[in-house]
Design a protein around this nucleic acid. Structure first.
Lengths: 238, 238
DNA sequence: ACAAAAGTGTTGCCCTTACACCCATGC
DNA sequence: GCATGGGTGTAAGGGCAACACTTTTGT
């Protein structure tokens, strides 16, 4: 968030009759690796909160759709493209940015574990790194609150849609998927009921391949593309 | 929305390095009177869209929380106070305001039929009036889209919370409440099942009084205050 | 052969749905 | 007394939660 200009303390156009806020987008990007739910954070290079970790994000540009701004920031700061994005909430409390009046439109995003390795820090952003959601470092601005809200949204999403697989690699086992649900929802689930429920949703299918690990090999599944389209449509405007 | 200043065409501070958008709040306020679901609209006094109907709203002021801005606009433009409000969505598509770059944080609001009569047009806003959601006049800006989105939210809300009574007077009959659900959800409901469901939710209680109408008198109910607190808590941040 | 994860069905319960008749009042 | 909306119970079906053992592999 708000990485680039540091010269916008207050209004650059003082004594305007109708002062305007700065508007930023911030993205809470989730993935799931090594058995933990993770969020992408960027280390801030400039003031304020220099050196602290913050959500990827930045100023919205003129003639840019809000969602496009979120996608652009993800690309500029982390090299990621084509990510699942949806608007989360808009935060505008006075005092949330020490530089002055700033409103942030937060986005919620999910990326497959596959792309997790592609993350590279952007040029003018600091390091980028994945953090366990349940063990975050101190964050800049009100970003901790934004992450908490996003986590709540992720829980709702898993509870009534089947989109947990967005967090996983393209091919995954049912045990992996169940693990995602258990970590996100913070509760233990029954294996048989879980499988029945997911398979009954008709959103994933067998790939025909097996994953060989330490023990009995597991069937690999992939999601049906239609499932994502359906969810997107569900959230679109009537 | 955007009633006051018409001099903000483009940026008042041209050639800034980081131009800022204007930020407004718009409120979709629902109520239920005479058997129809209604939205409050304000006739625009100034350009653009002069004379058209629009959602109540206006510019966010500095050091003002977004929700406070929404509440303030409702008071200034319609004389209403203490309304149930929740954030709906933020609209920022380029071109949505012919005057220039404007982002609108839309709020969703519900008012009891009791207060419906208190609506009076604000000083600098035009007339205020209630319109049947299913028969809206042409609206200014992208307000029709915002209303559609709000209606979708209202449906979700009635489906899994019991907050339909927020639209009704303080004391209401179960038939009135069922009628609200039927009009909002656009489907006919079974009387016995509806009553079982609502009473089972433990959110309303008998007042002990009866409403005398044309036929057999009906028991009057009121909602339990705890029900609203519960819903507010559910939406609050963890 | 053994340890460890994968995989698989049945039962009971509850919640949801479908459905029809009597009641109390105003006119 | 009749028209009109108010009010009530039950039975069947579907979905969800609880529960334990066999299978397949790697070592």
């Amino acid at each position: 968030m708000e990485t680039q200009p540091s010269h916008i303390s207050g209004s650059p156009c003082p004594e305007e009759k109708y002062p305007k806020p700065s508007v930023t987008v911030d993205v809470v990007l989730f993935t799931f690796t090594e058995g933990t739910l993770r969020v992408l954070l960027i280390r801030r290079k400039g003031e304020p909160f220099k050196g602290r970790w913050a959500l990827p994000g930045g100023f919205v540009q003129k003639d840019e759709r809000l969602e496009d701004a979120a996608a652009r920031e993800l690309f500029e700061e982390a090299g990621l493209k084509g990510i699942y994005l949806e608007q989360l909430y808009t935060f505008g409390d006075p005092g949330r940015d020490p530089r002055g009046w700033t409103i942030s439109v937060a986005y919620f995003a999910i990326v497959s574990e596959d792309l997790t390795g592609e993350v590279r820090a952007g040029d003018d952003a600091g390091d980028a790194a994945w953090f366990d959601v349940y063990q975050l470092p101190p964050l800049a601005f009100d970003h901790e609150r934004i992450v908490r809200y996003a986590l709540q949204r992720l829980r709702y999403k898993l509870e009534y849609t089947g989109l947990g697989f967005l967090l996983l690699p393209e091919a995954f086992t049912l045990s992996q998927l169940q693990n995602v649900y258990e970590v996100v929802l913070q509760e233990k689930l029954d294996k048989r009921n879980f499988r029945k429920k997911i398979l009954g949703m008709d959103i994933i299918e067998e790939t025909g391949k097996l994953r060989h690990g330490d023990h009995r090999p597991a069937k690999l599944y992939r999601f049906k593309a239609a499932a994502i389209e359906l969810e997107k449509a569900r959230r679109r405007f009537p």
